[in-house]
Simulated assay, not measured.
Amino acid sequence: MTVTWFGQSTCLVQMDGYNILTDPIFSTRTIGSWFGPKRLRPPPCKLSELPRVDIVLVSHDHYDHLDRAVVKELGNSVTWYVPLGLRGWFNGHGVTNVIELDWWQEHTHTSVSPTQPTLLIASTPTQHWSGRHFFDVNRSLWSSFIVKGPRESLFHCGDTGYCGVFKEIGRKYGEVGLALLPIGAYEPRHVLHHQHISPSEALQIHTEINATHTVGVHWGTFMMSDEHYLDPPKVLEEGRRERGLRVGSVGVVGLGRTVRVGGGMFCADVPAEQSIPS
């Protein structure tokens, strides 16, 4: 199992023979190339340079999690998993290969390829909101996703404030091999605590969902809050030590880096010639 981080909450996870892309944004700004915060660093590669993508998980429709340019480029070549109420937006852009899920709803993903096994993909609750402009606020749902394969498992969180639902997720789905948890855009707390967790709260969720490994995402890409853009990984590591969590169980991935997950350790760089194979 490998994970490659492209900035914000965009990752390519390779598990059980599938290439899974999360909350894709490759544009130079949050809204295309002309509006919103600009990337602090450019994307490490182009979308077209990735291997074949099989599945895209979209946690909600905010611009820094759903890039229209990516939707237009990938189109119906992938299966999109989206929260309740968002399929219509995709249909409006000519994309129909969309699975729309309500909270706690599960879908069995099957492939035409005999080399790819069946996956269980479930939408799970988070505490956030949705909307791409003033007139569609909360017209669609927001969610996290559990992906269970025969050997590997993934939790893609998206954005969330801390709430008790993560204990429920942990009780229902058991251990998860890799969690992608947001660790940035959390200051000032009195403004953002309802919608964005802090690194400390990410560590709490790591424990509650029974994650073996956690990668911190949603940091160091766009300036959208008051903390220094390089603080989240430092605060995450400090919290890991304070909680006595195993070295290698929680950390971050360098921009554009591919790491192998498993074997009791995490963040061992995959050699360049082995990373994101076609």
Rank of each mutant, 00 (worst) to 15 (best):
173 Y>I: 04
174 G>R: 06
174 G>M: 08
175 E>C: 10
175 E>A: 15
175 E>F: 03
176 V>L: 11
176 V>M: 09
177 G>F: 01
177 G>Q: 13
178 L>D: 09
178 L>P: 05
180 L>E: 09
180 L>R: 04
182 P>C: 09
182 P>A: 07
183 I>G: 00
184 G>Y: 07
185 A>P: 02
185 A>Y: 04
186 Y>L: 11
188 P>N: 10
188 P>L: 11
188 P>W: 11
189 R>P: 06
190 H>E: 15
190 H>S: 14
190 H>Y: 15
191 V>T: 10
193 H>F: 06
194 H>N: 04
195 Q>P: 00
195 Q>V: 14
201 E>P: 02
201 E>W: 01
202 A>D: 00
202 A>N: 00
203 L>T: 01
203 L>R: 00
203 L>M: 04
204 Q>R: 15
204 Q>V: 15
205 I>K: 12
206 H>V: 01
207 T>I: 01
207 T>N: 07
207 T>E: 13
208 E>D: 15
208 E>M: 08
210 N>L: 11
210 N>H: 15
210 N>G: 14
212 T>W: 02
213 H>N: 08
214 T>M: 15
215 V>E: 02
215 V>I: 15
216 G>N: 03
216 G>T: 02
216 G>D: 03
218 H>C: 04
219 W>K: 05
219 W>V: 05
219 W>P: 02
220 G>E: 01
220 G>T: 01
220 G>K: 00
220 G>M: 01
222 F>M: 03
222 F>G: 00
224 M>E: 10
224 M>G: 01
225 S>M: 10
225 S>K: 07
227 E>Y: 13
227 E>L: 13
229 Y>G: 00
229 Y>F: 12
231 D>N: 11
231 D>M: 13
231 D>P: 03
233 P>Y: 11
234 K>I: 12
235 V>S: 10
235 V>A: 12
235 V>M: 11
237 E>S: 14
239 G>D: 14
239 G>K: 11
239 G>W: 12
240 R>T: 05
240 R>D: 05
241 R>Q: 14
241 R>K: 15
241 R>V: 13
243 R>M: 15
243 R>T: 11
245 L>V: 06
246 R>Q: 08
246 R>I: 01
246 R>M: 01
246 R>V: 04
247 V>R: 12
247 V>W: 04
247 V>G: 03
248 G>W: 00
249 S>H: 00
250 V>D: 06
250 V>L: 07
